[in-house]
């Protein structure tokens, strides 16, 4: 990897490093305080991220896709919402720890609404936090806020499930530096040939196939080219731009 692509990949980190350099030059006291403040969060991160890593591994390796679709998918209903709420509430760690888990559940078939519930309850509802709140602000304060928050989360989930489709989200997070595989939704007839050939890359939703781009890499490109050839309506295109955009 060249230095340029390294910088491009870690844009935010480079930016923050520059800010700190400036801060150290102009206000060394504030810079030291900022570093000290960050350390608490760094420790928290190292306490939680390895667990998150293991949990995503376990979900991927042990939990079958059908199970996720049944319990967290579009048709999981109220029970799915409750399950998501419980999952988010028993979690540990800050909201960013919820991102990999939610992402993993989403790629395995969880619905948009349930992802919203998991993310929100992960951020807001935590047993140790509730105990803390009751201690300092009173039990009635804590319980009323908890009930209102749960209601708010459920309303948000319902609204967002209506407003955003999963396909829209998948298209929204395309990494432009990677080879891009696109299924033209106007041409796709939903025959499922590509899905049968490469279930790890293609997915059939609402009678249309779409590519899960996070699983597209240079290693399976040859096989993907085969699916392009096999597609009866030539709906699949590969756009192998090496960061030219």
């Amino acid at each position: 990897m060249t230095v340029k692509t390294m910088i491009k990949k870690n844009k935010l980190l480079v930016m923050v490093a520059v800010i700190y350099l400036i801060l150290f030059a102009l206000m060394p006291d504030n810079a030291t305080t900022a570093i000290k403040n960050s350390i608490y969060y760094l420790i928290e991160m190292f306490e939680v991220l390895p667990v998150i890593f293991l949990l995503t591994v376990v979900i991927e390796a042990l939990v079958p896709k059908e199970w996720i679709i049944k319990h967290f998918g579009e048709k999981s209903g109220l029970l799915g919402n409750l399950l998501s709420l419980v999952l988010g509430s028993i979690s540990a760690g800050p909201i960013y720890a919820a991102f990999p888990i939610s992402k993993m559940l989403m790629t395995k078939g969880a619905s948009v609404a349930n992802i919203v519930i998991i993310l929100s309850s992960w951020a807001v509802i935590k047993v140790p936090m509730l105990a803390n709140e009751a201690k300092f602000l009173g039990v009635s304060f804590m319980s009323i806020r908890w009930v209102l928050t749960v209601v708010a989360i459920l309303i948000m989930a319902w609204l967002m499930g209506k407003m955003i489709s999963k396909r829209e989200m998948v298209n929204d997070v395309i990494d432009h530096s990677k080879p891009k595989v696109v299924v033209n939704q106007d041409y796709c007839i939903g025959c499922g040939i590509c899905v049968k050939m490469m279930p790890e890359v293609y997915e059939l939703t609402d009678q249309k196939a779409y590519a899960r781009l996070e699983n597209v890499n240079s290693g399976n490109m040859t096989m993907i080219r085969n699916t392009v050839i096999k597609c009866p309506t030539q709906a699949i295109t590969i756009n192998a731009s090496g960061g030219a955009e």
Binding site: I19, Y20, L23, N37, S38, M45, T56, E60, Y96, F99
Partner: peptide, 21 residues
């Protein structure tokens, strides 16, 4: 998972230092 989290790690660390500021 390593691929997925590896992509996030740099940003998480950046965000933590932004919180510090």
């Amino acid at each position: 998972s390593k691929g997925m989290m590896g992509n996030m790690l740099g940003e998480i660390i950046a965000i933590i230092f932004i919180i510090g500021i």
